[in-house]
Amino acid sequence: MIDAIRLPWRETTIVGIAPVTRRVKSFRLAVAFDRPVVAGQHVDVRLTAPDGYQARRSYSIASAPSDDGTIELLVDGLPDGEVSGFFDGIAEVGDTLEVRGPIGGAFVWRPEDGGPLLLVGGGSGVVPLLAMLRHRAVAAPEVPALLLYSARAVDEVLAHAELVRRAETEAGFQLMLHLTGDGGRRIDAAVIATALKRLGGPRHTFICGANPFVTAASNLLVGAGLEPRTIRTERFGG
C-alpha cells in the first residue's frame, strides 16, 4: 500500500541498555513514529559527528509492535564497526540519536496473516523473527509457530532464556535450536523435514540471516515442496 506521508528522521533517546550476549547489547529507544510498527520491520539509525559527517546503518526492530512509544534494537558490537562500535563503547542511557522508520513492507507478519508460521534465523538474523514471536504471543497466540534458529554457540543465542521459556509455556510455539560450532550440525534437508513435520505445512515462512545461510535454507525449503511465494527472505552481509 502506498503511504503518502514522508518518512522523517526523528530524534530518539536511549532509555535502556542491557547485555544480551557477550557481544550483543539491547538498546531501548523512546521514539514516537507517526505510523504503527509491523513485526519484521527495521529502522535506519543516523549518527552525526561534530564536523557534520554522518553514518547510517539499518537495524531490525526486536520488540513487538506496542503503543508504549519505545522500540528495542539488538546491536552486535563489532569492535571495528563505525556505528556498532559507538553502540558498544560509547552509547549511554540518555544519549540521543536519529532514527527513520519503521521501514519495510515485505518481510513483515501481522496477526491477521495467520499461520502456521515458520521462522528460520541464522545468528543475529533472528531479531526480526523475535519481534514476530513476541507479537504472536500477545496478539495471536492461536497461530502455530516454529522457530528454527541456527547459532554458532549457545552463548551467542539471542534471547535464549526467553525463547526456551516461550517454548515451554506457549501452546503452539516450538523452538528448534541448532548449534553449528565445534562439530555442530548445520541446517540440512533432514532438519527441515523435521521442522515441517512438527509444524505442519507453513502458510508463511520468514528466513533471515547472512546470505549463504538464507540461500541454503530457502533452497532446502523450496526443495521440500514449499511454494516459493510463501517464503520471504531478508539478508545481511556480503
Binding site: L47, F86, D95
Partner: peptide
C-alpha cells in the same frame, strides 16, 4: 546536532564525492 562521542570514519574525499547522500 552531533551525536555525543561519535566521530566516525569518513571515507577519503575521492570516495565521498562519488557517494550519493546517505550511502556507504
Amino acid at each position: 546536532m552531533s551525536t555525543r562521542g561519535f566521530t566516525g570514519r569518513p571515507p577519503p574525499e575521492a570516495t565521498r564525492t562519488r557517494l550519493p547522500p546517505g550511502q556507504t
